[in-house]
Amino acid sequence: MPYIQDSKYDISIPFWHKNAHFSTIYAAKVKRFSSPNYIREKLELQDGDFLNIDYKIQNNDKAVILCHGLEGNSQRTYINSCSDYFLKQDFSVFAWNNRSCGGEMNRLPRLYHHGTIEDLDEVIQFALTKDIQEIYLIGFSMGGAQVMNYLGRIPEIDSRIKAGVAVSVPVEVKASADSLKKGFNQVYMKNFVNDLTRKLKEKSQQFPELMDWNKIKNINNFDYLDDNFTAPIHGFEDRNDYYFKVSPARSMEKIKKPVLVLNALDDPFLGEGCFPIQLATNHSFIHLETPKYGGHCAYPVKNSIYSYAEIRALEFFKSL
């Protein structure tokens, strides 16, 4: 499918947002967007854990399921903005929280990661119980990886799932982890590490015999955190095994639903392997758009309260 190198976003971007860090920080820390008037429901999972889902049904014909990024939740600005935009377009919206996200710690030792497709499937099945006829998936960063992994790894996908959009997605997770070690990008990594460390400390109280929690005090980067906690908690050999297996690069070729991958070339979270131009060009279902600008999950648009991500997502869905 098309490799869209000349993105329309590069024409509409405000000049002061041509700095990737400015765009990324503005979107994450400065921009504000209130959440819709959701219903929150606790979805009990088959393994005894739960997920909190915020949703608003106004049209049973079509709905979007929104997947947040690492250490995000259903109330983040980029989720609220996307939700509001699609609600105004007469879609129903389901914004879900990964385990431990959304203000409530989950019950089991496991947390979540880029390949958490079983939980996404539970959310999809929940939406289908509400008699939704068409479902569209939108994921941001790690959530984009979950969308792509779901569409590439679930053998039989319900015909009511029509398409997906993955925004600022780490197609190769190791490349993303490596990018966050460089220069100013370490500020983002430190924030993630601090948040995850707090959760691990809480897990150590829940499950004191599970592992050697004393190692928590040595966490100062993703390498150590993923080797000693993320990988063993979720059944991987080490961080490299984890990075390799949860990367959408392993599942992309098997995707058989239309997917738009929107990855800015200046995204400070992305590295080599996150712009699969050759694969997308020769793939029947993957559309790759690589704007020159956009930052990470930012894409501000001049004279608009919405971002290019949700505007482009709707345009993509309507084109199918």
Rank of each mutant, 00 (worst) to 15 (best):
Q146E: 15
D267Y: 06
P276V: 07
Y242D: 07
Y3L: 14
V261E: 08
Y299D: 09
Q146W: 04
E71F: 01
A20V: 09
I154C: 02
F22Q: 06
F229S: 10
M211E: 10
S100T: 09
A298K: 09
Q146K: 15
L279G: 04
R40G: 00
Y150D: 06
K8I: 08
V171N: 05
Y293I: 00
S35A: 15
D47H: 04
Y85T: 01
E156Q: 10
I25R: 05
E209Y: 15
H287D: 03
Q206F: 09
N185P: 02
G144D: 10
F184V: 05
K18H: 09
I11G: 05
R107K: 15
S176F: 02
P109N: 11
K8Q: 12
P300T: 11
A145E: 10
C67E: 09
F317L: 00
H234K: 02
H113S: 08
D195P: 00
M105Q: 13
C101I: 03
A249W: 04
I4P: 09
W16K: 12
R250F: 02
G164K: 06
K18P: 14
N214V: 00
Y78R: 04
K88D: 02
R239M: 11
N185H: 07
K130F: 00
S159Q: 14
S74Y: 03
I53P: 02
I53G: 05
F192V: 06
C82Q: 09
F229R: 10
G235E: 06
A145P: 13
Y85Q: 03
T281L: 09
S204I: 00
K217W: 01
A163V: 00
C274S: 13
V173M: 05
T290N: 13
I124A: 07
K245S: 14
T197H: 06
D61K: 15
S92D: 08
A177R: 13
L279R: 03
D6N: 15
K245E: 11
P258W: 01
I255P: 05
F207A: 08
K29G: 02
C82L: 06
L279D: 02
M142R: 09
A127E: 10
K318P: 01
K190V: 01
S100Q: 06
A264E: 11
M148G: 04
N220G: 08
K217I: 14
D178M: 07
G48P: 05
F192E: 09
D6T: 13
H68S: 04
L111D: 10
P109D: 11
I219W: 07
G72M: 01
D47G: 03
R40Y: 01
N37W: 02
I124R: 09
A63N: 02
L128Y: 11
E172S: 15
Y224V: 00
A175G: 15
S247Y: 01
K31H: 13
D178V: 01
H114D: 08
F275S: 03
I138E: 03
S141N: 08
G164V: 01
P109K: 12
G235T: 00
L265T: 01
